[in-house]
Amino acid sequence: MRSALQRTLSSWRAMAIAFIGGVLLLVAGPSVFASLTAQTSNASPQTVASGTLKLTMSATNPSAGFSSSITNMAPGDAVNRYIDLTNSGTLDSQGLTLAIASTGTGSLITDGVAPVTTRALRVTVRSCVAAWNQATGTCPDAGGAVTQIAAAPLSTFTSAQSFTDATLAAAAGLRLQIQTALPDQNETVTNGTLPANTVQNGSVGLTYTFTEIQRTATTTNS
């Protein structure tokens, strides 16, 4: 019969062998896997470039565009200004809109509510494929002028109004005629005193903001 000491040594020997075996596996195992890794790389780096979305406008010579103030408008008067709107980015765009922020005389911004019958300033946006004839205000293109945004009071432009042709390809542009008109309406002034709720002697500051958004994102397979 083995003694108790011999039994103890035997069990410790087994544990030591198991420990050493585990250490050997940890050290040698990764070396075995690494030897099975394969890699490849492109010879030259792939180039990935992002596009740009830019919208610019400029007065169409000889018109001074928006930088030229409109003064002394009487009912029935209309003033046409001409600007070139260009998608100067590299991405096509969509959702072209115009919003106008107006400050100043209320009767020039919002139509009167009965019994007040005043009619506010209207803005109309038209485009022409050819260059506008600025002397006559006509579009010489065979297809004629295209109404991009129909006449609407300034108050309507508080929210952005969509163009009829709402897409603009990269580097493409629109030749626009922006018409500001004061609708015909009658007011009689007695002894030099202006009537209440008049459209006379008013002034408004207009900030035109044209906006485009990028074309729909695409997924390309090739």
Binding site: T56, T71, N72, N87, L108, L121, L206, T207, T211
Partner: peptide, 12 residues
């Protein structure tokens, strides 16, 4: 993309 400009209009 946006483009903005200001203008003043006055009535007679």
């Amino acid at each position: 993309g946006t483009a903005t400009a200001g203008q003043t209009v006055s009535s007679a």
